[in-house]
Amino acid sequence: MSGIALSRLAQERKAWRKDHPFGFVAVPTKNPDGTMNLMNWECAIPGKKGTPWEGGLFKLRMLFKDDYPSSPPKCKFEPPLFHPNVYPSGTVCLSILEEDKDWRPAITIKQILLGIQELLNEPNIQDPAQAEAYTIYCQNRVEYEKRVRAQAKKFAPS
């Protein structure tokens, strides 16, 4: 494992614990031996107030490669969400998460999670990743928002 990646992720964890947006979660997972795995984080993004996503808490896994922060983490909703920019596998399609697009090593975990929260309610229809959600979003916004509200209710924190 890269010392650069681990040191950056340790800084990220410290900064997150000191200050993070209300309702968001970002925690490194534990290895079988109980030690912390900084390369694999369990996160959760709350649906934004005043949107059909409100009330939901959407679980996301963030996986970092050894060359982080040169390369972005892979962000994957578990379980996958109904959304035009979420692949059926759950992987998020967002330009700041793509090395050859808008990724920059200075982007923080907090910025990534806030960017994904923004994307939930403002899909990028130029870059669809899920045919069904994309089609319904474009053709029947009322039905799309109904499905999103049902999903938010399903993923409401207990």
Rank of each mutant, 00 (worst) to 15 (best):
V142F: 14
V86D: 02
E78I: 10
K154V: 13
C75V: 15
Q117L: 09
W41N: 08
K14H: 05
L38V: 01
D19F: 12
P80T: 12
P157R: 08
K30A: 09
V27I: 12
L97C: 15
T35P: 04
W53S: 00
N140M: 05
P46L: 08
I107Q: 11
E99S: 11
R149I: 13
P157V: 04
G55Q: 10
A152D: 05
A15R: 11
Y87M: 08
I109E: 02
L113D: 03
E12R: 02
A10C: 00
T51P: 02
M39R: 08
P28M: 05
S2F: 14
N31E: 11
T51Q: 14
P80E: 11
L38G: 02
I112W: 03
P28G: 15
K154E: 10
K49L: 06
P79L: 12
W53M: 04
L113S: 11
Y144T: 02
G23C: 00
P69L: 02
I107D: 11
H20S: 01
I116E: 05
W53G: 05
F77D: 00
A133Y: 06
A5D: 05
R147T: 14
F58D: 06
A150I: 14
S70E: 09
P28R: 08
F24P: 00
F82G: 04
L60A: 12
K65P: 11
Y144A: 00
A129T: 02
L120D: 02
I112Q: 13
P72W: 03
P69K: 06
R8V: 14
F58E: 05
P73M: 15
S2M: 04
F58P: 06
W16E: 03
L113E: 02
G50Y: 14
T108V: 15
A129V: 00
H83W: 03
P72V: 05
P157E: 06
D100C: 03
M39E: 14
P52E: 14
L97E: 05
L63I: 12
Q11N: 09
E42W: 08
R149V: 09
C43Y: 05
W16T: 04
V142P: 13
L9V: 00
R17C: 00
W103P: 00
K110Y: 05
E122Y: 11
F24R: 02
P46V: 09
T51R: 03
Q111C: 15
Y137I: 06
I107H: 11
I125F: 10
V86Y: 05
P88Q: 15
L119A: 01
R61L: 11
G56N: 02
R147V: 11
Y87E: 03
M36V: 08
E98I: 15
K14W: 08
G47V: 00
S158D: 03
G50E: 14
A106E: 05
G56K: 06
E12C: 00
V27S: 08
G90Q: 04
P21E: 01
Q11W: 11
V148A: 10
S71H: 14
D33Q: 03
K49Q: 10
K48T: 14
R13Q: 07
E145V: 13
K18M: 07
P28Q: 04
D19R: 04
F155A: 07
E78N: 14
G23N: 11
Q130G: 00
L63F: 13
P32R: 15
Q139L: 11
M39L: 10
K110F: 04
I109F: 08
F24V: 05
F64G: 03
S7Y: 07
G23T: 00
Y134G: 05
K110A: 04
F64P: 06
R147D: 01
E42Q: 09
N121V: 13
S95E: 05
K101Q: 09
G50I: 05
K110P: 09
S158C: 08
E143S: 13
I112Y: 00
D67R: 08
T108S: 14
V142L: 12
N124F: 08
Q11S: 11
T35W: 03
V142H: 12
I112C: 11
L63N: 11
A150F: 10
L57E: 12
T29W: 03
G34A: 07
K14Y: 06
H20T: 03
